[in-house]
């Protein structure tokens, strides 16, 4: 399982720049992710890609940009581009949910070169998982440019029944690169 996991891990690693894999490796058998909510589903991204989480502030829309570019904000004096991840990942937008209830996850500058944040519905937690909790095979139906790394099975005890919650682990670097290509 371990070898298989590592091999699978190599695929995105080759496609993506080094630091993410490096961090995964340094974690050994464990890795840390930031869990967040998009629509009704739980997603997770590598913790080392994250700079910080900030509250929603009004967004200034930019003309003549991709639909997934939400606009810009002034984050402590720095212009930060906000990407709507739901739009990017083609997740249907729930009309009842307002943008104002959401959060911005500000990404590490090393990823994109410009200061970028993603708009998510809610940020849930910083979690640590083991390698064996990740299922990378079940993403077979996805398209080529899919940024999904794998599915993390989060076990939690609910009235003595072991319930496993599925968290979609995405490679934010991939997602952002696609965005850059389109640009």
């Amino acid at each position: 399982m371990t070898t298989a996991g590592q091999q699978i891990m190599k695929n995105p690693a080759t496609a993506a720049p080094v630091p993410g894999t490096t961090s995964a490796k340094t974690a050994g058998k464990t890795f840390q992710v930031l869990e967040f909510l998009l629509g009704r589903e739980h997603f997770a991204i590598d913790l080392f890609d994250v700079r910080e989480v900030v509250e929603y502030t009004p967004i200034t829309q930019l003309p003549n940009t991709a639909s997934c570019i939400k606009g810009i904000i002034d984050l402590r004096g720095e212009i930060t581009t906000i990407v709507d991840l739901k739009d990017r990942l083609h997740i249907p937008i729930d009309a009842s949910r307002k943008d104002e209830d959401g959060r911005f996850i500000v990404l590490d500058e090393k990823l994109t070169g410009v200061k970028t944040g993603i708009l998510v519905d809610d940020v849930l937690a910083v979690s640590t998982f083991e390698e064996e909790d990740v299922d990378k095979t079940s993403t077979a139906g996805a398209e080529e440019d899919d940024a999904i790394v794998g599915i993390i099975k989060k076990r939690s005890k609910d009235r003595e029944n072991e319930v496993s919650e599925l968290i979609i682990w995405i490679d934010i670097r991939q997602a952002m690169s696609i965005m850059e290509k389109k640009k």
Binding site: Q32, L34, L47, F48, V50, R51, E52, V53, V54, E55, R103, V123, A125, V126
Partner: peptide, 16 residues
């Protein structure tokens, strides 16, 4: 909510 946010950021910083 704000506390929650602060805790998250703290966790992130701690992890890093």
């Amino acid at each position: 909510n704000q506390t929650n946010l602060l805790a998250l950021n703290a966790a992130i910083e701690a992890a890093r």
